[in-house]
Nucleic acid binder design. Structure first.
Length: 581
RNA sequence: GCACCCAUAGCUCAGCUGGAUAGAGCGCUGCCCUCCGAAGGCAGAGGUCUGAGGUUCGAAUCCUCAUGGGUGCGCCA
């Protein structure tokens, strides 16, 4: 039940009625007519811009339209007052029963309250993390992982058919580097002294991999040339790294639907097929690129390469798909991978990249546009850097990996719930400060705590009511007399609950899960505020020991808040707290 | 040099496909514990939304330019 769309439907109906009466001309476009919460609650419960949007096409004064519409709307039982304000705003005050009904609707619908059919079952593929299988995930990956996962849940909640996907970059030179690094650890396991030169991965996490390799093949590769072991170790090490990454993701409570291997694209004709598709559109040619201006590499020399004419699809320059030696660039299998996604029939592709891949956005969009003839929509979201702090000091090194802080370092210190929530309290394209101490602080300036506390507070109120001998089970409060919820402070909370379905749609439309986190903070704030007003006004306390009916109504409201908080946290991938400890 | 992202209160940040007097937390000031939990509550001060133009009935939001910051820029992935 989305009250906003319900009232908007009413507005449209009455506008149509005005047309039938001849007050408004025919042929008006109502798509821009909006019903939203007013900026200032004193203006009313909802406001519509209908009069201002329609004034020009209808060739009428906005206030005249607003007056006529106000008269129509006021006839409806749901509308208490309709007042024209300012340049032509129409402020609506809704009947109290509507808010009480909304609370009941939350209780009846439960966790599904706020679910939307906006997505109409459209198939969305969200690709995120996609870290190279060369080591454990680090903080940067963590943000992308949390963001992608929350976005996936959000879109699912908004009615899309979502696939969560991880692209394994196991086809490039970096997995050769991994294999060589593991080989060194393997020699070490055999008691040899080894040196980790530049271009190898020195992290401790490869020690057990080297030992496992020794257990598997004994000394078969010792003192042998690369040609004897590279392919096998590459395979072995990549699998071990993916096991590691899967463990990392699990620690963050992330489960992918699909792990898609880059390597699987080689030797199967898929890359060739994707490029053929582009070639058939006249988008592949042999050419020489201009050197980058202002920063010409010293060893620059013009070379002929196979290029994709991405500039035809919005990119700045054309991009190479083959190196000058004829082998594929990274871009080529990526084109093939996206070609595969297009062919799997998704309506929308979403890629989550780290900010350092920002330069890659245009060519990827160009590729998808070209491959699908503009039929498959693609959105690419960048996640900005995470700066870690501890005791107010920047925090950089990890004991585990040596050079970077891993996802595990973070999750093991603060837990998956806090990690996820904090990472989502910022827009994805804004840098994020993550302070190990602050995120665990139990105070109002810690949103995680504040929201969890609200949920726990409801749980505690329910327990308290039960202890007082009042039946506040879900079954009972679903039938509570909600007309007892008439205090403005209580209705304020109900109004906030009414915004939830609308917020889900806005967040889903913009692919911005952080809006959910901010909404939950506001909702929690309203609940805490109501709770505290019980201090001055005993009638507002959640538990009225001598009045079961009033308690049931108040607990119904509180329970509705808990349901929405729980649903919202569910989207963020955070478990609601039953109690604070 | 070019591209992308960003610029909102002292600080950290929200701001709804353009809407009314631009919001929150922290910090600051002042009140409030006989009170379902003061790990708090209530109230107040604090803004030329980086600047200049433009579009519009209406701009923090859209467009152009400028300034400042971040990221990236053939044969890495």
């Amino acid at each position: 039940m989305n009250l906003f769309s319900e009232i908007r439907a009413l507005v449209i109906t009455q506008l149509t009625a005005l047309q039938a009466e001849g007050t408004l001309p025919e042929g008006l476009d109502f798509t821009n007519v909006a019903v939203e919460p007013p900026r200032d609650a004193a203006h009313g419960d909802m406001a519509t811009n209908a009069a201002m949007v329609l004034a020009k096409p209808a060739k009428m004064k906005p206030r005249d339209i607003a007056e006529a519409l106000a008269g129509k709307l006021a006839e409806d039982a749901r509308v208490e007052t309709a007042e024209v304000a300012g340049p032509g705003f129409l402020n609506l005050r809704l009947a109290t029963g509507l808010w009480q009904g909304l609370v009941k609707s939350v209780l009846d619908t439960g966790a599904g309250f706020g679910r939307s059919d906006m997505g109409q079952g459209k198939r969305v593929n969200i690709e995120y993390v996609s870290a190279n299988p060369t080591g454990p995930l680090h903080v940067g990956h963590t943000r992308g992982a949390v963001f992608g996962d929350a976005l996936a849940s959000l879109l699912d909640f908004a009615g899309y058919d979502v696939t969560r996907e991880y692209y394994i970059n196991d086809g490039g030179a970096q997995v050769d580097v991994l294999a060589r690094s593991v080989y060194l650890r393997y020699l070490e396991a055999h008691g040899q002294e080894v040196a980790f030169e530049d271009g190898t991965y020195p992290g401790d996490y490869l020690i057990p991999v080297g030992e496992a390799l020794k257990d598997k093949v004994g000394d078969a590769f010792v003192d042998k040339g690369e040609q004897f072991w590279l392919a096998e170790i590459r395979e072995f090490a990549t699998e071990k790294m993916m096991d590691l990454i899967r463990e990392d993701l699990k620690a963050l409570k992330i489960e992918m639907d699909v792990f898609y291997s880059e390597k699987s694209l080689y030797g199967t004709g898929q890359i060739e097929a994707a490029l053929k598709s582009l070639e058939d559109k006249g988008l592949i040619y042999e050419g020489v690129l201009e050197p980058p201006k202002g920063k010409t590499p010293e060893d620059w020399e013009p070379r002929e390469q196979t290029l994709f004419k991405s500039s035809d699809h919005g990119d700045d320059v054309d991009r190479p798909v083959k190196k000058s030696d004829g082998s594929w660039t990274y871009f080529a299998p990526d084109i093939a991978y996206h070609y595969d996604k297009v062919q799997r029939g998704f309506d929308l592709l979403i890629d989550i990249f780290g900010a350092d891949h920002g330069g890659y956005v245009k060519r990827m969009k160009a590729a998808v546009s070209a491959l699908s003839d503009g039929q498959t929509a693609i959105d690419i979201k960048l996640t900005q850097l995470v700066k870690l702090f501890k005791n107010g000091e920047p925090f950089k090194m990890s004991k585990r990996a040596g050079t970077f802080v891993t996802l595990r370092d973070v999750v093991e210190q603060v837990g998956p719930d806090v990690t996820r929530f904090v990472m989502l309290t910022r827009k994805n394209d804004a840098p994020l400060d993550f302070d190990f101490d602050k995120v665990l602080e139990q105070s109002k300036d810690n949103p995680v705590f504040y929201v969890q506390y609200a949920h726990a507070r409801v749980c505690s109120a329910i327990k308290k009511a039960t202890d007082a001998g009042i039946d506040v089970t879900d079954a009972t409060i679903a039938g509570a007399d909600l007309t007892k919820l008439s205090d403005p402070a209580e209705l304020t909370v109900a109004r906030k609950l009414a915004e939830w379905p609308r917020l889900v749609e806005i967040a889903g439309r913009t692919n911005e899960p952080h809006r959910v986190a901010f909404y939950l903070y506001e909702l929690a704030s309203d609940l805490h505020s109501l709770y505290h007003s019980g201090k001055d006004n005993a009638d507002l306390r959640f538990v009225q020991e001598d009045n079961a009916a009033a308690t049931q109504a108040k607990i119904a409201l509180a329970r509705a808040v808990a349901i929405v908080i729980s649903a919202g946290l569910g989207i963020l991938g955070v478990t609601p707290a039953q109690e604070m400890r």
